[in-house]
Each structure stands twice: as structure tokens, then as C-alpha cells.
């Protein structure tokens, strides 16, 4: 069984949008790390991760995201999250991701707050 993510980077003002298509599992690790490295190499200071509303996210994927957050902390980058379902918003709160990244309802809300 294979799983691929399609990730598109877009610069919106001073915010780098990382648009992640597909499920978030341990199999997403290389895709997310490559996308982050790309954003970091572009000098991104503010990163907005966009998820698909219907994405399946498990603990393996959450671990990958936490490790990505560790890198953004080291690099003093601000992180926002959008596109999460109510269920995964709840889980991200439970595991503490919201201590290090803010969840926004919409892209517009995120860009307004982060810009």
C-alpha cells in the first residue's frame, strides 16, 4: 500500500502557504520535510499549513507534524494551521499542537492574523 502527498508552496505576502493534499501519516514524512526545507530555504518566517478537510490523520502523521514544529521553533518561525475538521482540531488541542501553532478557521483569518 502506498500513499503520496501532493504539496504546493505559495507565497502570499510574507506568509508561505504549504498546501498539503492527501492524508497525513508516517508516509507523509518525506513530503512534508521536503516542503518545509523548500520553504525554509526561501527564508520563510511565517508558514501556513493547509490540510484537506477530509484528510485522514493518525498518530504517525501527528508525530511528523510535531517534529516539523520542533524545526520551526528552532528557526523562530510562526506557524498557522487551516483546513482541519472539528475532529482533528480537537485532537490537535489534546496533544498540545496548539501550544506551538495556531489553528484558524479560514485562510483569510490566518493571513489577517499572521501578516
Amino acid at each position: 500500500m502506498t500513499q503520496a502527498n501532493e504539496i504546493v508552496l505559495k507565497q502570499i505576502g510574507d506568509v508561505t502557504l504549504i498546501d498539503i493534499r492527501g492524508d497525513i501519516t508516517i508516509l507523509s514524512e518525506s513530503y512534508l520535510n521536503d516542503a518545509y526545507a523548500d520553504a525554509n530555504n526561501r527564508g520563510a518566517g511565517k508558514i501556513l499549513l493547509k490540510f484537506e478537510k477530509a484528510a485522514y490523520i493518525n498518530s504517525g502523521g501527528i508525530s511528523v507534524l510535531i517534529q516539523l514544529l520542533a524545526k520551526t521553533e528552532q528557526n523562530n518561525q510562526t506557524i498557522g494551521l487551516i483546513g482541519l475538521s472539528d475532529h482533528f482540531t480537537k485532537i490537535f488541542n489534546m496533544v498540545g499542537i496548539t501550544k506551538f501553532a495556531k489553528i484558524y478557521k479560514t485562510r483569510e483569518d490566518a493571513l489577517k492574523a499572521m501578516s
Partner: peptide
């Protein structure tokens, strides 16, 4: 807990059972 993982480089083990 996420703070130890991020700030003290502790392995993120036990997350699935916690959830």
C-alpha cells in the same frame, strides 16, 4: 507531552495510546 518533545528533543512515543 509536546513541550518535552519539542524543547527537550524527547521521542514522541506513546501518542497513539494517549489519543
Amino acid at each position: 507531552g509536546i513541550t518535552k518533545i519539542i524543547e527537550e528533543n524527547v521521542s514522541p512515543r506513546g501518542l497513539g495510546v494517549f489519543i
